[in-house]
Each structure stands twice: as structure tokens, then as C-alpha cells.
């Protein structure tokens, strides 16, 4: 698992991972940019190309494995996490990437999502959150904002939405990051960090469905408003944002608050410094919950805490049992306990 492989020796390029299949997402769909970012990342990770496995569930995003020249398996709706877990447990050397959407992982696969996070196998989850069902043509999803009118909510939805980051924190997840599909550079950087993290790393990608939910993330992503609504988090750096870099986040009482540097005696010193490594997920949860217009959306790696992975624990137990068990073969096992000879 920890094999150090010289990337230069591998000499992989984007080309090694491009499939010969025609990419069939709608023109303008955010998925194209995500695919590009993943193609940027895979060659530079130092992992031999046959060790990548891309798994998915069902949805527009879940066509992803067909568009990558790796091992791939396109599963059934909601269950990619279970596929990924089975693969990773069987062969921990594989670099497993799970592609899922907000319907796939927050609705039908909600249960698997929280459990994979809880167990913490070393897989990378790319959660394409466009807040709508695209493949089935426009029904609301568990992340659709309350009140949104869609094909199945003509009067507006009556439900409070999920925030994937909060679910990750609630399930004691160790890695959560958020990126926007409009920034390939940011995606490339964060995907790489997710890959290096040992354990389940969930990256929520605010992705635009041009057809059924166009501009759903516009406040965060559009050129005009993004600076005021994006807070890109970096470890050890103060949480400062805004076009003029004049806004920041402070902790007041038990709540986060947006402040203006230079006003009311606030200086840079007062601004919270980001630490993604704290075991306590309190601040991370609050950061994940922040949404415009009251707050900027937190982007980048919000939480990254080291911990043992599921497969490490399981295979350590295998090694221990192999060493200590008296049973060296199934023949031994069949002869344990009460046996008798008939002659």
C-alpha cells in the first residue's frame, strides 16, 4: 500500500487515462470539467495506471467510469459505496475512486454513504452535487433548496435539504472538502489532497446541470459574485475572503460570524485560522454549514484528520490471526472439536 513509486518512472500522462468512448454529457455540463480535473490528477499520483478503479452508482455523473481508461464498474443506484468497500477490502493496493451524485449518495444511497464514511476505507468519493436529478430529467433531490419548483415539486419542495458536509461530520468522517466545477485548478489541487489522505475522503463538487438546474450555484460560482461568496480554506491561513480580501470569519460565542477587517477594531489577528486536522469536528461542521447569502461557502479542504483505515484494521487482524492461529489449513479446521474414527 505504501509502496513508493517514482512518478517520473511511471511517466504517465493524461492520455493514459482518456477513454476512447465518446463523452455523452450535455454540452456545458459541469461534469466535463470534473473529468478534466481527474485526468489531470491521476497521472501525477505515482500510482500505476492499472491500480485505479473508478466505481459509480447511477445518474449522469455515474457514467464517469466509462469515460476513464482505468478499471471501472458502473453499479446500481446508490450502491457505489458498497462496491468500493468490497474492492478496497479485497485489494488494498487499488486506488478506488467513487463517483456519485446528490441523488445517488444522499437519497437512495444515503445509508451506504454514512456507513462508508463511518468505516473509513481509503477511498476517494467525488460527490457531484447539482441539487437535481438530471438523468431522470429534473426532479428535486435531497439537496434541492427548500421551496424549489421542480417537475415533482410544482408548488415548491416541502423538505429541508441535506448538506453533505454535515452528514460527513455527523458520521465522524475524517476528510471533507468542497470545490466548484468552474475552477479546474482548485479541483485538481483538492482531488490530489483527497487522494493522499488515507481514509474515506469526500469531496463535494458544486456542479452545474445546465439543463435542469442551471445556475443553481451561481451565487458561489459566477464571476460577479464569487469573490464575496467563496472562502477558500488553507491550513494555517486565516479565513479571509472578498474581492478586497477585507472580510473574514471569527468565532463569536459558539457561532461563526462574518466580519470586516478594519471595522470595529477587527484586525487580521482576530480572524480564525484554519486547522483541518483537529479531531473535534465542531468548527469544521460550522464551516461546512456556511452558505450564501449570510456566509461565504467554505471551499477547499475543510477537514482532514489522520486515522487508521478500515482495510488496514481488517488486514492487520488477518496478519495477526495468521501468525497466532493454530489452524494452518481448512483440513485442520475440519478436524477441530469432537471427531471420531470409524474403522
Amino acid at each position: 500500500m505504501e509502496n513508493v513509486i517514482n512518478t517520473a518512472e511511471l511517466q504517465l500522462t493524461k492520455k493514459d487515462f482518456e477513454s476512447d468512448r465518446m463523452v455523452k454529457w450535455c454540452p456545458g455540463c459541469g461534469d466535463h470539467a470534473i473529468l478534466k480535473a481527474v485526468e489531470n490528477v491521476f497521472p501525477v499520483l505515482g500510482i500505476p495506471k492499472e491500480k485505479f478503479v473508478v466505481v459509480s452508482g447511477i445518474g449522469c455523473s455515474s457514467r464517469f467510469p466509462y469515460y476513464m481508461n482505468t478499471y471501472g464498474i458502473h453499479g446500481i443506484h446508490g450502491r457505489a459505496a458498497a462496491l468500493a468497500t468490497g474492492i478496497k477490502l479485497t485489494n488494498p493496493e487499488l486506488s478506488v475512486w467513487m463517483i456519485t451524485g446528490d441523488g445517488d449518495s444522499m437519497a437512495i444511497g444515503g445509508n451506504h454513504f454514512i456507513h462508508v464514511v463511518r468505516r473509513n476505507p481509503d477511498i476517494n468519493v467525488l460527490l457531484f452535487n447539482n441539487k437535481i436529478y438530471g438523468l431522470t430529467k429534473g426532479q428535486f433531490s435531497p439537496t434541492t433548496p427548500q421551496g424549489a419548483k421542480t417537475k415533482t415539486s410544482p408548488q415548491g419542495t416541502f423538505e429541508a435539504p441535506f448538506n453533505p458536509g454535515e452528514l460527513v461530520m455527523g458520521a465522524h468522517g475524517k476528510f471533507f472538502a468542497r470545490v466548484v466545477d468552474t475552477n479546474i485548478k482548485m479541483m485538481t489541487q483538492v482531488f490530489e489532497e483527497a487522494s493522499h489522505h488515507k481514509g474515506t475522503s469526500v469531496v463535494e463538487i458544486l456542479e452545474n446541470c445546465v439543463i435542469f438546474n442551471n445556475k443553481i450555484h451561481a451565487l458561489i460560482t459566477s464571476r460577479e459574485t464569487k469573490d464575496e461568496n467563496q472562502l477558500f480554506l488553507e491550513a494555517g491561513k486565516p479565513m479571509i475572503f472578498g474581492k478586497e480580501k477585507d472580510k473574514g470569519i471569527v468565532l463569536r460565542g459558539t457561532q461563526l460570524e462574518v466580519v470586516k477587517i478594519g471595522e470595529n477594531g477587527i484586525t487580521e489577528e482576530n480572524i480564525l485560522v484554519h486547522d483541518p486536522t483537529t479531531e473535534d469536528a465542531g468548527i469544521h461542521t460550522m464551516l461546512a454549514s456556511m452558505m450564501p447569502p449570510a456566509f461565504p461557502a467554505a471551499l477547499g479542504v475543510i477537514r482532514s484528520v489522520k486515522s487508521k483505515t478500515f482495510e488496514q484494521a481488517v488486514w492487520a487482524s488477518v496478519a495477526h490471526e495468521k501468525e497466532t492461529s493454530k489452524l494452518k489449513s481448512v483440513d485442520n479446521l475440519l478436524r477441530t472439536g469432537n471427531t471420531w474414527i470409524k474403522d
Binding site: V53, V55, Y71, I73, G75, I76, R79, A81, A82, L83, A84, T85, G86, I87, L89, T90, N91, L94, N111, H112, H115
Partner: peptide, 14 residues
């Protein structure tokens, strides 16, 4: 469901 789907994943991995 996760029981069998993890099984399919494991089979894919050999």
C-alpha cells in the same frame, strides 16, 4: 443490499 454489492466489488477485485 450493501452485503451483496460489496460482494460484487470483491469479485471484481478477484
Amino acid at each position: 443490499i450493501a452485503g451483496i454489492v460489496s460482494t460484487i466489488g470483491a469479485s471484481f477485485a478477484g
